[in-house]
Amino acid sequence: MRVVLITGAASGLGWQLARACHARGDALLLTDIDASGLAARANELGSERVMALAGDITEPELHARLLDGCRQRFGRLDVLINNAGITHRSPTLRTDPAVFRKVMAVDYHAPLELTLAALPLLRESRGQVVAIGSMAGWMPVLGRAGYCAAKSALGQAFEVLRAEIARDGIDLLMVYPSFLDTPIDRNALGGDGKPAGHARSTIGRIRSADWMASLILDALQQRRERLFPDRGSWLASLLWRLAPALYHRKMSQRFAGEIS
């Protein structure tokens, strides 16, 4: 039986990952900033193989509680899934710097710091790390400067980290999804830090969270290093590299509402 720690587990992709892992027989340590939502999800799964600890993933104190709780309850950690995330929809020039700092704290600093703190447990199990990046880390998306920056930083840091922890027998899977039907976009911040006031613009097909969760668990089983699940967004990222002027024209047309 594997022990899996999932952040942002009360909804969206994190919840679908929790359901799928539980169905496969894994023990779960779940965390989310939404305490009531997390408690409801844990009750839905049952308490036999599930432990839930709510808190702010950007706080080192929560990291310590999670890892101490994991060792005391389960005695091991096999898989860490860094799923918790936040985004914004706002023109760069009209975004409060505090929004950029918050997005960077949740999407970059928190997963990196939690992973580093979890390494002693992961070394013991020769475990696996998952980081949920984004195709927005590979190509610019208008109205998402902070999110693009955070996901780019996450991808670069974890690509470096993979080589360093491989010597300890720890595998690292970077996931680069595109647009998913999850609360991260429904709860996006506006430039003032309040909920965004306009609908999101998208590229390609909007995929379901359960579809994404299934692909991630399959990639873990295969011990893959990277997962690019959406062919359309992957091709768009190539367009950005091969013909950036054309990409910008297309992006400006498609995302006009993000910068108006």
Score class of each variant (00 low, 15 high):
1 M>F: 06
1 M>V: 09
5 L>Y: 11
5 L>T: 11
7 T>S: 14
8 G>P: 07
10 A>H: 01
17 L>N: 09
17 L>Q: 10
18 A>E: 08
19 R>V: 11
20 A>L: 12
22 H>I: 02
26 D>M: 01
27 A>T: 05
29 L>H: 04
31 T>L: 05
37 G>A: 08
37 G>Y: 04
41 R>W: 00
45 L>D: 14
45 L>W: 07
46 G>V: 00
48 E>Y: 01
49 R>N: 15
50 V>T: 15
53 L>Q: 13
56 D>L: 01
56 D>Y: 00
62 L>S: 05
67 L>S: 10
69 G>L: 02
70 C>W: 02
73 R>F: 04
73 R>E: 15
75 G>N: 12
77 L>Q: 07
80 L>K: 02
81 I>F: 09
82 N>P: 09
83 N>S: 07
84 A>W: 02
90 S>F: 03
96 D>R: 01
97 P>I: 03
99 V>W: 06
103 V>I: 14
104 M>S: 13
106 V>W: 01
108 Y>K: 01
109 H>W: 08
109 H>I: 01
112 L>C: 04
112 L>P: 00
112 L>F: 06
114 L>W: 03
116 L>W: 03
116 L>R: 06
117 A>S: 15
118 A>P: 08
118 A>K: 01
123 R>H: 06
124 E>L: 04
128 Q>N: 12
132 I>H: 06
133 G>V: 04
138 W>M: 13
139 M>H: 02
139 M>D: 11
141 V>T: 12
141 V>Q: 13
144 R>S: 12
145 A>T: 11
148 C>I: 00
151 K>D: 14
152 S>R: 03
152 S>C: 08
152 S>Y: 02
154 L>A: 12
159 E>P: 00
159 E>M: 02
160 V>M: 13
163 A>L: 10
164 E>G: 04
164 E>Q: 11
167 R>M: 12
167 R>N: 13
172 L>T: 10
174 M>H: 02
176 Y>K: 05
177 P>Q: 12
179 F>Y: 14
187 N>T: 01
187 N>E: 14
189 L>F: 09
190 G>Y: 06
200 R>S: 14
200 R>C: 10
202 T>P: 05
204 G>Y: 05
205 R>W: 08
207 R>C: 09
209 A>H: 05
209 A>N: 08
210 D>T: 05
211 W>R: 02
212 M>H: 06
215 L>C: 10
215 L>E: 15
216 I>L: 13
216 I>F: 11
217 L>Q: 14
218 D>I: 01
220 L>P: 04
222 Q>A: 15
223 R>P: 11
225 E>G: 06
225 E>Y: 03
226 R>L: 07
231 R>P: 03
232 G>H: 00
233 S>T: 09
233 S>G: 15
236 A>G: 08
236 A>S: 09
242 L>V: 11
243 A>Q: 08
243 A>E: 11
244 P>I: 01
246 L>D: 14
247 Y>A: 06
255 F>W: 12
259 I>V: 15
259 I>M: 15
